[in-house]
């Protein structure tokens, strides 16, 4: 569950962003749209605790993270937040399995990684290096990586920007399905207008 209250942020006191409040329950999907430069990615980073010098209050699962220390925030993020980035980046020297494994600090066994990989049909890619995978495959791997900790908040940054209509629908269905399955709040940040039809609750940043 994610709740925000009166979040605002400024880059070096030049650019000001004031964000509307967000309320997203477990299993639900929340869409944030807007043009380039309106602070979408900044909001996502604020929600993920990557930017800390904002004002306002963020509550995830009844825990207010707004005044956490860096160390506590790192820890909380690792246990409770999964992030899917716009461009799927991986550690080049590790294979897919290890890339997924390094994304969790919890003790998880091989069968759990295999299970999630199976459900997103990347199980045959586990022992390959990231550079030998296609963009679509990497996208699915990054979803697995974001879900491996069973987060209570799943953040996705432009997950569909490089996909055609058919694949866009498939990815969004997949994300919604996983959010239901893992019972986590899913927040998608995008400029892709096509997603408005697929997701009910949304805000548009101006």
């Amino acid at each position: 569950m994610l709740k925000t209250n009166e979040i605002s942020f400024s880059y070096n006191n030049k650019k000001y962003f004031n964000y509307p409040n967000i309320d997203c329950k477990d299993g639900d999907t929340f869409l944030i749209t807007g043009k380039s430069g309106c602070g979408k990615t900044t909001l996502l980073h604020i929600l993920a605790g990557l930017i800390t010098n904002y004002s306002g209050v963020i509550t995830i699962n009844e825990t207010t993270i707004s005044n956490f220390s860096t160390r506590k925030l790192d820890q909380f993020r690792g246990n409770n937040i999964g992030v899917i980035f716009q461009k799927s980046h991986f550690i080049n020297s590790l294979n897919i399995y290890d890339n997924i494994k390094i994304a969790t600090k919890q003790k998880i066994n091989t069968s759990r990684i295999k299970e999630i990989s199976n459900s997103l049909s990347i199980n045959q890619l586990l022992y390959m290096l990231p550079r030998s995978l296609s963009a679509g495959e990497l996208q699915r791997v990054s979803i697995v990586r974001a879900l491996i900790n069973s987060p209570s908040l799943l953040l996705a940054d432009e997950p569909t920007s490089s996909l055609d209509d058919e694949n866009t629908n498939a990815v969004i269905d997949l994300l919604k399905e996983q959010a239901k399955l893992f019972n986590c709040a899913l927040v998608i940040v995008t400029h892709d207008q096509r997603l408005k039809n697929a997701i009910q609750s949304s805000i548009e940043l101006i």
């Binding site: 993920a48 990557l50 860096t70 160390r71 790192d74 820890q75 909380f76 993020r77 690792g78 246990n79 992030v83 980035f85 980046h89 550690i91 080049n92 390094i102 994304a103 969790t104 600090k105 900790n149």
Partner: peptide, 16 residues
């Protein structure tokens, strides 16, 4: 390149 990898590890919950 390493900075990006390390930034991602921070997202996954690793401390500085």
């Amino acid at each position: 390149q390493r900075e990006y990898e390390m930034a991602m590890l921070r997202v996954f919950g690793y401390s500085r």
